[in-house]
């Protein structure tokens, strides 16, 4: 007895079964793509596919509230935030996919397959009886029922999530907001600074004369060489971005960052297991 089959069969009928099989294939494929795609923006789009598929599945299973929350909150809000960040960072930024730990991929693959097989055995062996009749908890009364549960039985954990949200907000402030420690420079200060500096004129923007106009694409100078001034210094330092050669035959504008060192910055010389 296949669990998925049971799940599908217990809902409304043949249409749901068909929807399940189509969406299952799509969502699993998209999830795999999400993991394997080297470019973050592709991953984000594939994640949207996964979430939308799930939303449709929820809807088919008679849980409209969940379906809409899935679309509004995850696809609508969270994913859009992801995309904003990716746009700022550079939409075509890609991670290095080179694996530096010997045997890591093989072992991870084997372990993953092992867990998959075990869980398949679990679900396959489980005798899942016919699901509860698609009664009042599903369909039109789904929202009311959920509300009832949230505000009675699960009111405490529900209220508790506020702690989580406050923590998240506080954390975002701590990690992203830098308090000003010196007085804000006035218009006059800025003007003076600019005139005294090397570049009285505005700096070139990213992407000028280049093939793309992403934030991490350096502008090209008249001789075809990329201008490092056109990039935000933080972004220029980012590994993996701005390494790309803007055009054929043009030397790389910036020294490449150290590749394949995504174990995090490692400031300690005496750490165990030096990086290979």
């Amino acid at each position: 007895m296949n669990a998925a089959h049971v799940l599908a069969a217990s809902t409304v009928g043949a249409g749901a079964v068909v929807a399940f099989w189509i969406l299952a294939v799509i969502s699993v494929a998209a999830a795999l793509g999400l993991v394997l795609a080297p470019r973050a923006v592709h991953g984000a789009v594939l994640l949207a596919v996964v979430m939308l598929s799930l939303a449709v599945l929820y809807g088919v299973a008679g849980a409209p509230f969940l379906a809409f929350v899935q679309i509004i909150v995850y696809t609508g809000a969270v994913l859009m935030l992801f995309l904003f960040v990716l746009m700022i960072v550079g939409v075509s930024a890609a991670d290095s996919m080179r694996e530096t730990i010997r045997g890591q991929r093989l072992a991870a693959g084997l372990a993953g397959i092992g867990l998959l097989v075990l869980l398949a055995l679990v679900v396959g062996h489980a005798a899942i009886g016919p699901a509860a009749p698609a009664g009042s908890n599903y369909g039109v009364l789904n929202v009311q029922r959920l509300a009832q549960l949230i505000f009675t039985r699960y009111v405490f954990p529900f209220e508790l999530t506020s702690a989580l949200l406050i923590t998240a907000a506080l954390g975002a402030m701590v990690l992203a907001h830098r308090e000003r420690t010196s007085p804000k420079p006035s218009q006059r200060d800025l003007a003076r600074q600019r005139v005294r500096g090397d570049h009285p004129a505005p700096l070139p923007g990213p992407g000028v004369y280049a093939r793309g106009d992403a934030a991490d694409m350096p502008a090209l100078l008249p001789d075809g060489t990329p201008s490092p001034l056109s990039l935000n210094p933080v972004m220029a330092r980012r590994r993996g971005s701005a390494i790309r050669v803007p055009g054929p035959g043009v030397p790389a504008p910036l020294p490449p960052g150290e590749p394949g060192k995504d174990g995090g910055p490692d400031a300690e010389p005496d750490r165990e297991g030096a990086h290979p």
Binding site: Q104, G263, G273, H275
Partner: peptide, 8 residues
């Protein structure tokens, strides 16, 4: 040595 420092 198993403790490589790599999160993955």
């Amino acid at each position: 040595r198993v403790q490589t420092g790599f999160v993955r």
